[in-house]
Design a protein around this nucleic acid. Structure first.
Lengths: 197, 197
DNA sequence: GCCTTTCTGGCAGTTAATGCCAAGTGGGCG
DNA sequence: CGCCCACTTGGCATTAACTGCCAGAAAGGC
């Protein structure tokens, strides 16, 4: 049923308000210099409730990635069978890009993540979970290896490399204030790695 | 001068004692369940001094990586000019591998790192610093790009990919209790990514 | 309107980490 | 040996990120 309870709605509003406050403060004075207490105060919420919405401070920046990971996996999975592993991953990344928030918000968050080592690390860690979910999908697309006695690292390696290129492209993109084309940068990274193309 | 003062020596002893205590406790009861207070108590040192030796709890596991990063950078840098970027990086990784502790200790630490999210994040963070240090070295080996107007993502992408393969190989290696050859796994990963070879 | 379910806020407590200061210890020197 | 300087150590207080607990408020079903 379309039972959007008031709880759900006010929750959505609260989450957005907290998120806006947090991102603004992070941009103004840096991530480490901003305390949870300050965010809670300015967002008009108790510290305790803030921790109920976002389990950790880092989740304020890279928290909503679970849904995106699911979208990515499904997109890659549903590519036609004749599409190569690399192209399937590329298609997935493309969808994620457009499904994201506004480009300005993405740019702001990217800058924050790449400027804060602990955030960058946590961000990559979240993405590692996406990677493990994608490995079987890519493995299926590669077919079985000729030697079934030793484990097949191909899928793992391909997925890890694709993400490394996404990361590299995003960092460059954020460093140039979004003036370059992200998809184009990704292609350049992949070309540099794979030689031909 | 070769002035190995008593301070330096006792410092070395203390560091080793703390490290042994910490790794043992982490293996016995897990990383998160072990407190700094407990490590300090069992190592016979004050909590305050422990923090002077190791700035953070995470450094107890992946702390001595600064020296390794330096070694890696220098090794890659000193490869002959005719060695390709990929081979130079491979040579660097090879040196690091053998320069490390005993394989058992490495295996133990790897398992701990891959099993503990916060440790994994910190480990990634340290490696990201290695990457940024290596990018100019690889860039020099690649030569300048034909189009100087747009930034050159090649070095960044190559370094990121090489590390992604190291990470993939290490995870597989740790998952198989070190029964496989790490260098061999790395080569397989790179072959899967780069096609030929 | 009443009762159950769920959410909220405050409070105390834990843990990692940092600054400060007094006390201890090694090392050089007359 | 005794003295002084440099450096280290340990305890204390403090901060910031979390977590558990409990009382009270708000929402939803009847």
């Amino acid at each position: 049923m379309f039972m959007t309870t008031l709880w759900d709605r006010s929750r959505q509003v609260a989450v957005q308000a907290i998120l806006d406050t947090a991102v603004r403060l992070f941009a103004e004075q840096g991530y480490e210099q901003t305390t949870i207490a300050q965010i809670a105060r300015e967002a008009g919420i108790s510290q305790r409730s803030l921790f109920r919405y976002f389990g950790t401070k880092e989740d304020l920046v890279c928290g909503d990635q679970e849904a995106l990971g699911e979208l990515l996996r499904r997109t890659v999975e549903q590519q036609p069978a004749e599409v190569s592993a690399w192209d399937a991953l590329r298609a997935g990344f493309e969808v994620i890009l457009t499904a994201n928030h506004t480009p300005e918000r993405v740019l702001e968050l990217s800058r924050l993540i790449f400027a804060t080592p602990s955030l960058h690390a946590r961000y990559i860690e979240k993405r590692l979970r996406w990677q493990t979910e994608l490995v079987p999908v890519i493995q299926a697309r590669l077919g079985t290896t000729t030697d079934p006695s030793s484990p097949d690292p191909r899928a793992k390696a391909i997925v890890a490399t694709a993400f490394a290129c996404v990361d590299t492209a995003t960092e460059l993109w954020a460093g140039h204030d979004g003036r370059l084309d992200l998809a184009d940068l990704y292609d350049q990274c992949l070309a540099a790695v794979r030689g031909e193309d």
